[in-house]
């Protein structure tokens, strides 16, 4: 505060369908010294609708294009590195997170070759196995590390062509919203990434039970994960957990493998 200028204080909002709305409930929480929107069930529903709408276009984009868009996300993150550093443990974590986005961006057009296969079969057929995105994925963001932990789950899900809803961590939501601002200025289409802040205990069960969510990443879930899995079982959601730090298999866990039989012609 110099020269008597009023501070422009930021209100942290949700990120749904490429826009930054407040919670329809009007509720906020005070977290990390800021007022942060406290999303309601309805906000979660709107986020799923936005993700479903975006999924078609994003999954149909060419792998090459998805890779470029993800690289663009790394660029916009780089320009906001200062803001990210303030929302997590510092520059080092930011650098790790950005490098991770670049690393996964490179995988976009290599997935089919590594995860897919041409299978030998006893008949006059070509038999291919091809990875396809699962659909709408809910990600419960890990609490620590606030930024890199989230990026480690987001990047592999998005690079494969899924549309995601991030449920930010209760304790460190700012990293998730800062990330949303980087996403908004990148070329990631609106709705491909959505961010909800609020109470995980309130929102996680809603997303786990939602019939239009195809997979849920419970890496960041605390408390009763089994209860979430029971809810997820209703529509046989894919339940995903992180296994490795960086790996194409992390992408694979958000993909479905489809097998195609094609007659060998002459």
């Amino acid at each position: 505060m110099t020269g008597g200028r009023l501070a422009v204080r930021k209100t942290y909002k949700l990120f749904i369908g490429g826009a930054f709305p407040r919670s329809e409930s009007g509720r906020t929480l005070e977290l990390e010294g800021y007022n942060v929107a406290r999303a309601s069930r309805k906000d979660a529903r709107e986020a799923v609708v936005a993700a479903r709408k975006a999924f078609g276009g994003w999954s149909a984009a060419t792998a090459y294009n998805r890779g470029q868009v993800l690289y663009r996300l790394a660029e916009t993150m780089e320009t906001r590195a200062g803001a990210f550093a303030a929302a997590c443990t510092g520059r080092r974590e930011v650098a790790r997170a950005i490098d991770r986005v670049v690393w996964y961006a490179g995988w976009a057009d290599k997935l089919a070759q590594v995860l897919g296969s041409a299978n030998p079969v006893a008949g006059p057929y070509f038999n291919f196995t091809i990875p396809e995105p699962t659909g709408v994925v809910a990600i419960i963001a890990p609490t620590e590390p606030a930024l890199d932990g989230l990026v480690a789950r987001l990047a592999p899900a998005v690079v494969g062509g899924n549309a995601v809803i991030i449920l930010a961590s209760d304790d460190h939501p700012l990293a998730a919203i800062e990330l949303a601002e980087a996403v908004a200025t990148s070329d990631v289409p609106g709705g491909v990434v959505n961010v909800l802040t609020g109470l995980r205990s309130e929102l996680a069960p809603v997303l786990a039970a939602h019939m239009d969510v195809n997979a849920i990443d419970v890496t960041g879930a605390d408390g009763d994960v089994a209860a979430l899995e029971v809810l997820a079982a209703e529509n046989v959601k894919r339940v995903v957990r992180a296994r490795e730090d960086r790996s194409p298999w992390e992408i694979a866990s958000f993909m479905e493998l489809k097998t195609v039989w094609h007659p060998i012609g002459r």
């Binding site: 979660a44 799923v48 809603v206 039970a209 939602h210 019939m211 239009d212 809810l231 209703e234 529509n235």
Partner: peptide, 9 residues
């Protein structure tokens, strides 16, 4: 049921 639904079903 209390759960949001999907067009798929």
């Amino acid at each position: 049921t209390g759960a949001y639904q999907s067009k798929d079903y």
